[in-house]
């Protein structure tokens, strides 16, 4: 256990700077966008926004998480404003999770530290498990801290006294599963790959393919089943604050099971492959 704790602390520390950069940047952007809410929610701007959005085709607006016709009402609620902007933070956090998941495995190999680490008294399977724990720790930390920071930000800039607590909790829980899924995908592909290379670009590509599939599913009724291949659209931030439907729960379960399976495969493969070349 001492060895596990030693590696865990070390990996946490090694990845702290990138976490701080990503988290600080997203927090600043969050606060900046939320600060615009009082202005945007004023009637003058609402009319302008309504006019602009109303010219969009309904399916196109849906693709960006906006229900045409109800725009004005939506932009009068701070949570909708928050959730609308949050879809961009989700993309950023998924990219962070993919980078971390891929880098935490691959960096040890690309910089050839693995020759030292893997000859220390710690099993290979534990090395990969600890690294995954660090990935989950940072995703969890990102999610929780963003949730905590969002509360005062929403309170401060809410000039309509709307309720947002339960919606914020539901949104946070749903997107957490997305982050974990994409982080685990990047982690596992890097660990399973023969050369343990940094393959984040491939996983980011996969994410954007799933994103496009989600858009396709929302603009073409015949393609609406494709939404299941797009975690981002399954838990679209503007609607994810609503209750947990049975589909939501099933989808969360599927993402969790897939993450566990990918992680299991990564542990097995990492323990039985060449760690050094």
């Amino acid at each position: 256990m001492r060895n596990v704790w030693n590696l865990y602390k070390f990996e946490l520390r090694q990845n702290t700077p990138s976490f701080l950069v990503w988290f600080t940047t997203i927090t600043i952007v969050l606060v900046a966008f939320m600060a615009l809410f009082p202005t945007f929610s004023s009637s003058q701007y609402l009319e302008l926004i309504n006019a602009k959005i109303s010219i969009l085709p309904a399916v196109y607006a849906r693709g960006f998480g906006i229900q045409a016709g109800a725009t004005g009402a939506m932009f009068q609620q701070i949570f909708f404003w928050y959730a609308y902007m949050f879809q961009f933070y989700i993309i950023a956090i998924i990219i962070y999770a993919i980078n971390l998941g891929s880098g935490i495995v691959a960096k040890e190999h690309s910089e050839k530290h693995i020759d030292y680490l893997a000859t220390k008294p710690i099993k290979k399977s534990l090395i990969i498990i600890v690294k995954y724990k660090v990935l989950i720790t940072y995703i969890l930390l990102f999610t929780v801290l963003l949730f905590v920071i969002s509360i005062p930000v929403l309170v401060v800039f809410d000039n309509t006294n709307s309720q947002f607590g339960p919606q914020l909790v539901r949104l946070t829980i749903k997107v957490f599963f997305e982050y974990v899924f994409f982080g685990t995908l990047a982690f596992s592909i890097s660990a399973i790959n023969k050369k343990t290379a940094r393959l984040s670009i491939i996983v980011i590509g996969l994410f954007f393919v799933s994103y496009l599939l989600g858009i396709a599913s929302s603009v073409q009724n015949q393609l609406n089943q494709l939404v299941y291949l797009s975690p981002f659209f399954m838990f679209q931030s503007t609607t994810a604050g609503q209750g947990f439907s049975s589909t939501d729960l099933w989808y969360m379960l599927v993402l969790a099971i897939l993450s566990v399976l990918m992680f299991g495969l990564a542990v097995w493969r990492y323990s039985t492959k060449d760690l050094s070349l």
Binding site: Q14, E111, K112, D115, Y116, T119, K120, P121, I122
Partner: peptide, 14 residues
Amino acid sequence: QQDLGYIPGEANLY
């Protein structure tokens, strides 16, 4: 590993 000391050809420390 507890009783091993190893130095690889390339000293790639952190």
